[in-house]
Write a protein that binds this DNA or RNA. Structure first.
Lengths: 220, 220
DNA sequence: TTTTGTGAACTCCTTCACAGCT
DNA sequence: AGCTGTGAAGGAGTTCACAAAA
């Protein structure tokens, strides 16, 4: 149910605009999906709509939040406070969405001890203690790629079972640990791929090899 | 082919380790996918493997790069230089992967004129001029959510046809414009969902309504 | 013998289309 | 009359399993 957070965001926006009721058509277009898909997705949570009317916005916000586990606050640790970790620590979107950054950890002596977003950065040595002390279940890895796997293993050993990985590596974890990854280079590369396609039909792997062959055949 | 960048990263790592040949099995495990899937993906680019042997790493790096359009450098503009935009501008992974950040643009007077990662930040007013001057086709939006759609429209009007969006909104664009989005809150919410599942079987939408009903039926 | 490249089967997700409520 | 909830159809992507090539 990777789309629930998008629905929740659209619903929250509607609630702020004092909208009380929304149809699947309206909500779907706000979320950028097909309305049948939205209805099917919501139907997995239960029958929270009213036929002929639509969905009650506040009620649906609550139900979706509950399904996502956002009726409680999840304590989070950020490992690695370079530019990215710094940006993450300061990102306001977390607190308002059910997450509480409880610990910041870094290996760099110049960073350790500084205060970021109201929290003091602790040395990497204290990682396990911080995880246990705050009952942290979600770890964010914003370290350089070469150390990400090691940090990941330490997080898992300390009891973390969900990891959000910003380092450009494929993390190896036990089956019961959930990993999500965010890789900006990969997103840009996907865009570059589409840009290239737009430039013209020349040189596009096998498709164009076939075209070239055809052109050859025709010209002879 | 959203997986090609992952294969490319694995291949680049192998090349750095002076590995010359790799089997689909090995490359697939490095990329975290099934080997049949990897072979099928690569087969769309052409037949670049040798049966009984595997793939030549350097040759495959070249072919995948070419397919992704990374044999040329793509000029990029970053709009919004808060913590996140700052982090993106300083992220070294771009330059080494076929992208060149050519312009930085922000609306905040305190940020305009400062130098970030060797580039001077220009006022938002100059957005269109920067896009034209550098022939920019890819725009990165790292602004607050409320202005993201407006920035997006200006980028598109100026000629940008691919957008990487970090603002937590669904952007509306013409069909020919490609949008990729990165939303850290959404990734965390997906993790929270899985964390909650692990906590116990109580209260999980319709599945548990069914279980509860069954329990009722049994107890009566 | 080893490993690719790929038809065929399978599984999962999406969309249609409409019966059933309000 | 209007909109949800959902079976059924359709499509896309994944995995199997093996023939063909080195």
């Amino acid at each position: 149910m990777a789309r629930l957070p998008i629905y929740l965001r659209a619903l929250t926006t509607l609630a702020e605009e004092a909208v009380t009721t929304v149809s699947s058509e309206e909500l779907a277009s706000a979320a950028g999906v097909n309305s049948a898909k939205l209805r099917k997705d919501l139907s997995y949570l239960g029958s929270y709509g009213t036929r002929g009317v639509g969905y009650d916005v506040d009620y649906l916000v609550y139900q979706v939040s509950r399904e996502l586990g956002l009726t409680q606050d999840w304590p989070v640790v950020i490992v690695g406070l370079g530019h990215l970790g710094h940006a993450l620590a300061n990102y306001g979107g977390f607190a308002s969405r059910g997450f509480a950054i409880r610990a910041l950890v870094d290996a760099d002596a110049a960073t350790v001890g500084t205060e970021i977003a109201g929290l003091r950065v602790r040395h990497l040595d204290g990682l396990e203690e911080e995880v246990r002390k705050h009952g942290i279940a979600i770890g964010v890895i914003a370290t350089p790629a070469p150390v990400a796997q090691e940090i990941c293993e330490r997080l898992v050993a300390a009891g973390v079972s969900s990891i959000l990985n910003f380092a450009p590596v494929v993390l190896v974890v036990p089956d019961e640990v959930e990993v999500r990854k965010v890789d900006m280079s990969i997103e840009l590369q996907i865009l570059a791929f589409h840009e290239q396609r737009k430039l013209g039909p020349e040189r596009h792997g096998r498709l164009n090899d076939a075209v070239a062959e055809l052109a050859d055949a025709v010209s002879t």
